[in-house]
Design a protein around this nucleic acid. Structure first.
Lengths: 161, 161
DNA sequence: CTTGACTCTGTATCCGGCTACAGGGTTTAG
DNA sequence: CTAAACCCTGTAGCCGGATACAGAGTCAAG
């Protein structure tokens, strides 16, 4: 206690954050942070002698990246690979390129599909908002399978059990 | 490679498909079909006296709808609501409109985000494919948290059991 | 009749991504 | 000194969306 490394700070920009603070600033939740750590997304943080995690403010950027990537549809394990490659100093993200390119393609396709569908939906929407009726577009897609076919519960004519 | 129309396929007349056939034609898998049924997405099909499910070919359209909706990010329970409303003859999908409109908005936003990010990623990709180096864009997003802060596992200086 | 493909129900399992909780230690303000 | 507010580990649970398997009945061909 005589020597508290509490806040010499100042070195670079390493303001030591405890997990709760990280949670607050990142909006990610303590449990999730630990979960990320377990999952290898964060790289283990420093510890105080008593075992408390101490984070460098930079972790916030990382978390931000993670969130963004997630929103884009990257899975945690992909994100992990991306980060791992980068971290490992492995030449500029060899497989990351793969992942990214791949994602990019998928992205493109989903974009197209979504746009197409959006048009469809949007059209149907306005159309039936005006008419108060829909004729076939969206709900037309549902159409059929008239749910009311079943026999009155013939469930067990045979004697099972 | 249409369905075997061994029977007059006139209005709603049930070309009886057994679950396996439905699975094959829809590409959805027997277990999943039963799961959907349990989840209320399909409305219970007819049964033979022996209890086998008998589907009307129309179910294939429904399944198609489900798949499409899923791809678009609708959850099964939303899809269920949509279908339920339609089925129930409830006036033209009142809440469906809500759902759809809502989705539409979300869709729009995600589209924008995705496009933005795609640009970023794409840019970084080509750039570092040319230079063989990346300088900051994508991987720059990762940046920081230099993983190597930890003390050599100081894990438990205190004695905790 | 026998066999093999198919189906039934019910329960268990998986995966991803968290979240909760129990049962402790630590820090700090009063 | 004490209590509150943190933090720790470990394990369990949840939700969505399936998937697997066991154990039994059914059906059609040979």
């Amino acid at each position: 206690m005589a020597l508290k490394d509490k806040k010499p700070v100042t070195t670079g920009s390493t303001v030591p954050l405890k997990i709760g603070e990280v949670a607050k600033h990142s909006g990610i939740g303590i449990e999730a942070l630990r979960f990320y750590e377990r999952s290898g997304l964060l790289g283990r943080p420093g510890r105080t002698q008593s075992g408390y995690r101490v984070y460098d403010a930079a972790v916030l950027k990382r978390l931000d990246f993670i969130k963004r990537a997630q929103v884009l549809g990257f899975s945690l394990s992909e994100i992990k690979r991306i980060i791992a490659d980068k971290e490992a100093g492995k030449s500029p993200c060899l497989e990351v390129r793969e992942i990214v390119r791949h994602r990019l393609e998928e992205l493109g396709e989903r974009l197209k599909e979504m746009r197409r569908y959006r048009r469809e939906l949007g059209a149907a929407l306005t159309q039936w908002e005006e008419t108060g009726e829909l004729d076939g577009h969206v709900c037309g897609l549902i159409e059929g399978t008239d749910i009311e076919h079943s026999n009155p519960t013939p469930r067990r004519l045979t004697k099972r059990s």
